[in-house]
């Protein structure tokens, strides 16, 4: 790997790990996502601290331009993350819909407020 690529990976690692650790400490990431992103940080850290690792693996896989391996892994990982988010979103949407229906049922039929002396406001609760 060239010095430049190594530098890029190193800077990325520092920034990524710093952001992850900060978010985890402030408790804004849920545990399951924490594990995910910390793994990323770890992989980045290993790649940055053992510069020959990427080269070796790339050579083994017959990849001429070593940074390609890095990009390939990154894209593969992002694809997985995006799929995971789609899954989580679908699940959340189902639950939100169910809750909306439940709320409408619990709230019960809208009372007729024209019957007792006329309505004021828009009647929304």
């Amino acid at each position: 790997m060239t010095t430049e690529t190594h530098l890029v990976v190193a800077v990325l690692t520092v920034v990524a790990v710093a952001v992850i650790v900060r978010m985890v400490r402030r408790g804004v990431l849920k545990a399951k996502y924490t594990v995910l992103w910390l793994t990323v940080g770890l992989v980045l850290a290993v790649a940055a601290s053992v510069p020959t690792l990427l080269d070796t693996v790339a050579d083994r896989l017959g990849i001429w331009y070593q940074p390609t391996l890095f990009l390939m892994l990154a894209i593969g990982f992002l694809l997985l993350v995006a799929m995971h988010f789609s899954y989580e979103l679908s699940r959340l949407e189902k639950r939100v819909r169910a809750l909306a229906e439940e709320l409408a049922l619990l709230r019960g039929p809208v009372p007729d407020d024209t019957a007792d002396g006329g309505a004021t406001g828009d009647g929304s609760g």
């Binding site: 909306a100 709320l103 409408a104 039929p109 809208v110 007729d112 024209t114 009647g123």
Partner: peptide, 22 residues
């Protein structure tokens, strides 16, 4: 909802738009 209730219909109100299926 007011129009429906005033006409004597039972009106259930969803908190936001779910689309016709919902």
């Amino acid at each position: 909802h007011r129009v429906a209730a005033a006409a004597g219909a039972t009106c259930l109100r969803l908190p936001f738009n779910l689309g016709i299926g919902g």
